[in-house]
Amino acid sequence: MRVTFTVNGRRQEADDVWEGESLLYVLRERMGLPGSKNACEQGECGSCTVRLDGVPVCSCLVAAGQAEGREVVTVEGLAGEDGRLSTVQQAFVDAGAVQCGFCTPGLLVAADELLERNPEPTDGDIREALSGNLCRCTGYEKILDAVRLAAARTGEAV
């Protein structure tokens, strides 16, 4: 089947999609957007997190056909048009929140949405918002640092 939807502001189309394919597969293998990651494909790790009509979801659990006509934002859509990193992206680099980096795209999408919703999160809020994103390298401490840093920088900028 053919699937058409908007990814990071651009209309994208994929043909010959098998009906059982996930949104994740179509993004990665058919649309040239492998930033969203395939760590578990069962909604248990969050590495494939994208925003579907603004809402963070596991793209591995969205059937490709369900995305028809909808708006998807992936990690590739976080940086500015000029390639400038978003506040959250820069904070992850600066705080040492990236090791192997496989969990990073999903965490960035989730953290970005958290700060949009709650610009001054407590540690408890950060932990809850990111509790669906597994990281195996960092022990999460530097990820917390990064989100705190991003929140502080966003606050300063306002």
Partner: peptide, 13 residues
């Protein structure tokens, strides 16, 4: 900072 950090946060790595 990691030389691969930017590629990893943009999804390009």
């Amino acid at each position: 900072l990691r030389p691969d950090g930017i590629l990893k946060v943009t999804g390009e790595f």
